[in-house]
Design a binder for these strands. Sequence first.
DNA 1: CCAATAGTGTCTTTTAGACAGTATCGG
DNA 2: CCGATACTGTCTAAAAGACACTATTGG
Lengths: 250, 250
Amino acid sequence: MATAKQSEKDFLRNYNIHDYDVPLTSVDLVIFTIRDQALQVLVVKRGDHPCKGQWSLPGGFIDIHNDVDLDGAALRKLKEKTGVEAPYLEQLQGFGSRNRDPRGWSTTFAYFALISSDRITLSHGGNADAVRWCPVESDEGLPKLAFDHAQILDVAVQRLRNKVEYTSLPAHLLPEEFTLSELQRVYQVLLGRLVDKSAFRKRIREGDFLEELPGKWRLGSNRPAQLYGLRKGQGTVYFNRLMTGEVGAK
Amino acid sequence: MATAKQSEKDFLRNYNIHDYDVPLTSVDLVIFTIRDQALQVLVVKRGDHPCKGQWSLPGGFIDIHNDVDLDGAALRKLKEKTGVEAPYLEQLQGFGSRNRDPRGWSTTFAYFALISSDRITLSHGGNADAVRWCPVESDEGLPKLAFDHAQILDVAVQRLRNKVEYTSLPAHLLPEEFTLSELQRVYQVLLGRLVDKSAFRKRIREGDFLEELPGKWRLGSNRPAQLYGLRKGQGTVYFNRLMTGEVGAK
DNA sequence: CCAATAGTGTCTTTTAGACAGTATCGG
DNA sequence: CCGATACTGTCTAAAAGACACTATTGG
């Protein structure tokens, strides 16, 4: 047994990754928010080669001396761009091919994040217009993205829209306190259709992931609205049916 | 404009990945099948360091000179181990950290595959018992796996069991021709519970992803059963509700 | 009082759930 | 005829869908 262990030790001592041809590895982020009643995504202007000057998703190489794991690397990059500490962050999908980066075979771990737009101050590196929000839908609003980032964004939007149908994810796009009507509007923006108020509220109530904030109200020139917050220590709720209804269908 | 292009060319000419510290990158496979009415997974005995002699999931480094993209790399490895060409293959999740491999910071793209056990002849490299199927459940059946492969397997099993509740995925675990009862048994094995026959068949019929094979029957000492096959050119079907029923609940 | 938005009640329609029943083979 | 498995029909219960109704503010 000592021999086998010794043999492994010898192997590791002699192992040098620089002897091999390996792909590049990065982490890229698709950071979503709701602004002006529309789904928007964060893009940055590249300051370095390759694709210098083009817009792209925020991201970059893994720093093997400082990053501990993939999630950590993604969180680090999110913090660098937005200052946000603990939003909703989920691994989206890996992408990798010999073509996607002119420097050679490269892979990326794409993450997608949901944040409330009012929690953020965009950190513009040196360049003043280096970071901005873009509406996902409008054809003129979204610039051509570097690398395969348009494809990554597509996959992310699909995944988000899909999950809206059966999860409580959209709540992460709102500030800490919000009304049910505000939440419903977010769902409607993401779904691209109106949903029935009564059915929506029944659904949310049964999901049981919100808590009423006692005595807190959104005031206006109408009936005050109860404020809610995400129930602590409760992850994403998966409903057991899709949201199939549409208002005015009959 | 010519200057910017030239600048990018100069940059790429001088770029050498060996100047940087990058992580290792591999692709690992969780290959599922149904054998003996149980969910089983393919494991291989490692022939090389590190973790030589330990069981692990099949996989290995990306070959940047021959692989075109991630999916291609995964398909190549699947073919090497099982000879299967076109099963159900889906990217599971990326894993990466400084600890998971003794050689240093490493990442892996885990895939999961579903295949029919009767389509396969395991290709035993040089070593006769280098590849085998293991039941996923039984505690004694599954050996300790190298690296973080136990965790990867866990995530894969969770994902599969989850998708069974609302997709047509389990059909890929059967041979080309099968009966509805056989399909129901697969669902039951994966769900770990019995489901009502009538409700099951209604669900499958409405999913409309199977086609009756006219004049083909499974015979026995009972009423013959209609054989079905997957409808061509139709991807996975997502039902809009979970399979909530349980037999004998009332 | 009116406009505007918040929130609830109720009837209808759909569909899953439960289980009993019929069908068709070999022996 | 019997055992076994395939397949269908029907009643019931529960939930979603549709929409009208009431509630409460500011002006």
